[in-house]
């Protein structure tokens, strides 16, 4: 099922949570809504589900205007961050709930519901736990039951709100792979919300990066990492370092010196230079480079992070070196980013 979000605005008590958001979700796609807290990602998910109503704009499921439908009519599978399993029901009853509450004519017989619940438990690899209560399951198991329950109603769209947010790191990684497998098996159009970029980049076909109630960029993991289209995305996805710079005569200037990067397409004026700390070229002499005094050096896993003070106004910037690199012992380092991007600044 394709989902189209068209110019949706949502306000809570006059405070806008989403500004004019539009998004096309393709059928069968696994898409992540990624952003810091307060970016509006959960609001967008709840609007698609019908748990909230848009202040303006429409949401289409295929050709149907879903904005006119209630949550029950939309037939979405929603998985909550804290599972929201019915604590007084067994695992099997939880999974069968959506079938049990159907109106008489479309309700499958009890035997059929039980069979469906068993099948779904097999799918989420929890066979044999039918009779358990939610309190008797681990967090990861509960989340898998919640997913099975959402899938039992054969939803048009599967929506997951921070599905792994309450789990510890190892379980998260396992469940991530497992969710990808399930998605590939069942082919549901799936939207999930996360603030964990690793999760979004690894799992999703496309990532929707959100900030302050707006969509910043939509793209594959490669697109949002390699060609971020805004300072926010560059800063939010992956590690990044930035320096205030200036463009003059198609050259990038830092303080009063050009640093050997040419930017013929960027209009002259103040700008911010972004680059990845690990993607830098170290230089010996400095005839057009960024040079700085080492103020801090830390070993992080397989790299050494060096913090430099650059230029007269002592801007701090971080780069990464291999741990055994000779430059790590120097007090002054000169470098030039290999890949970088300039965003004009309005000051």
């Amino acid at each position: 099922m394709e989902v189209r979000v068209a110019n949706v605005r949502k306000e809570f008590d006059r405070f806008p949570a989403l500004h004019d958001v539009s998004l096309d979700i393709r059928s069968g796609e696994l898409i992540a809504l990624l952003g810091p807290s307060g970016s509006g990602k959960t609001t967008l998910l709840r609007l698609i589900a019908g748990l909230e109503r848009p202040t303006r704009g429409k949401i289409f499921f295929g050709e149907d205007d879903a904005s006119l439908k209630s949550i029950q009519q939309r037939n979405v599978g929603f998985v909550f961050q804290h599972y929201a399993l019915f604590r007084h029901m067994t695992v099997a009853d939880n999974i069968g709930f959506g079938l049990k509450v159907r109106p008489g004519a479309t309700r499958p017989p009890a035997e059929e519901i039980r069979r469906r619940a068993s099948e779904l438990l097999d799918l989420v690899q929890l066979s044999g736990l039918e009779k358990r209560y939610p309190a008797q399951l681990s967090g990861g198991q509960r989340q898998r039951v919640a997913l099975a329950r959402a899938m039992a109603i054969e939803p048009a769209v599967l929506l997951l709100d921070e599905p792994f947010g309450a789990l510890d790191a190892q379980v998260r990684r396992d469940l991530r792979r497992w969710l990808r497998d399930i998605h590939d098996t069942t082919g549901h159009t799936t939207v999930f919300v996360t603030h964990d970029q690793e999760e979004a980049l690894e799992l999703a076909d496309r990532v929707v990066v959100m900030s302050q109630g707006r969509i910043e960029q939509v793209g594959t993991a490669d697109e949002v990492y390699d060609t971020p289209n805004s300072p926010f995305v560059y800063g939010f996805i992956g590690d990044s370092s930035s320096l205030p710079a200036r463009v003059e005569d198609g050259q990038v200037w830092l303080a009063e010196r050009p640093i050997g990067l040419s930017a013929p397409d960027v209009p002259a004026g103040p700008a911010t230079l972004f680059f990845r700390p690990h993607d830098v070229e170290l230089l010996d002499g400095c005839g057009g480079c960024i040079a700085g005094t080492v103020v801090n050096s830390r070993r992080v896993a397989e790299t050494r992070r060096v913090e430099l003070e650059v230029g007269g106004d002592r801007q701090r910037v971080e780069i990464e070196l291999p741990i055994d690199h000779a430059a790590a012992n120097k007090s002054r380092i000169a470098f030039r980013p290999r890949k970088w991007k300039l965003f004009p600044r309005a000051d």
Binding site: L51, I71, Q72, G77, F80, A84, V101, R149
Partner: peptide, 20 residues
Amino acid sequence: GDEEAALSLGASGWQAFWYV
């Protein structure tokens, strides 16, 4: 949360109250 889950699974308001 529990009520929202029940509604998303297709339960009516009354069913959500009664069963959840």
